[in-house]
């Protein structure tokens, strides 16, 4: 597997004296699927903000391969191949599922190229492949506004995939999903990892178990425990601060 590792070392973020991240260290290997769990306020979203350049760390190292992410702005980090799915899905309701993916497809983005744009076979294949990956092939011609909450989340993941990221950050994908949708989402994320790394932040332990990969538990801005889901669920410190509440 070629690709870049994500590497956080001794990262701290201080907001007005409040330590949101505290000496956080974490490595995500190429192709890995990593779940991040932790109680509210543990710093999960802040960690994603640091990786995507939205928040600058107060100290510490953040690298993706050879690139120093602390020196780059959001746009260049995105160009580097780091995609992020926010908690609230934002797809374009007035456009069809297919058109949503088409907008996300890598292609020249100026007004004139967009006016001249013709869907060629290669682009169609790429879109259809993603449609299959996110399980929305049947809904390709429907407006995104008609999708269920879960399907909208998948569509947004699909839009990130169209940009061909090396690392995908997904913040609380299954919040508000039905059990069935949650199960499908786990399958979806397992399927897309491998070809790229995926970091999933989630509360739902059943879901994390379904992902079946390495889990990192955050607490008060640093790593409390790391390992398989069984390992962390049996870790005494984790039980105290999180599971055993």
């Amino acid at each position: 597997m070629s690709g870049n590792s994500l590497y956080l070392d001794g990262v701290s973020v201080v907001f007005d004296g409040f330590q949101a991240l505290n000496n956080l260290s974490l490595v995500v290997e190429p192709g890995e699927l990593r779940a991040i769990i932790g109680p509210n306020g543990a710093g999960k979203t802040t960690m994603m903000d640091v990786i995507t350049g939205k928040t600058r760390p107060t100290k510490g190292t953040v690298r993706f391969g050879e690139s120093d992410l602390t020196r780059m702005d959001e746009a260049s980090i995105a160009m580097l191949g780091i995609g992020r799915k926010f908690q609230k899905p934002t797809v374009f309701d007035a456009l069809t599922v297919f058109e949503n993916l088409e907008l996300a497809l890598k292609a020249p983005r100026g007004p004139i190229p967009c006016l001249r744009w013709r869907l060629n076979g290669e682009a169609r294949t790429a879109i259809e492949r993603t449609l299959a990956e996110i399980g929305l092939t049947e809904r390709a011609r429907d407006r995104a506004g008609l999708l269920s909450h879960g399907q909208r989340q998948w569509l947004e993941i699909g839009m990130l995939l169209m940009q061909d990221p090396q690392l995908l950050l997904v913040d609380e994908p299954v919040a508000g999903m039905t059990d069935h949708e949650t199960e499908l989402t786990a399958t979806l994320l397992r399927g897309i990892a491998g070809a790229r790394s995926v970091v999933v932040v989630e509360h739902d332990l059943e879901f994390v178990r379904a992902l079946g990969h390495r889990v990192t538990v955050l607490h008060e801005g640093s790593v409390l425990s790391e390992g398989s889901i069984d390992h962390v669920q049996n870790d005494q410190r984790v039980i105290e601060v999180y599971l055993g509440r």
């Binding site: 007035a94 058109e99 088409e102 006016l115």
Partner: peptide, 8 residues
């Protein structure tokens, strides 16, 4: 066109 969809 795709431009129109970008506008929307």
């Amino acid at each position: 066109t795709k431009f129109g969809r970008v506008l929307t």
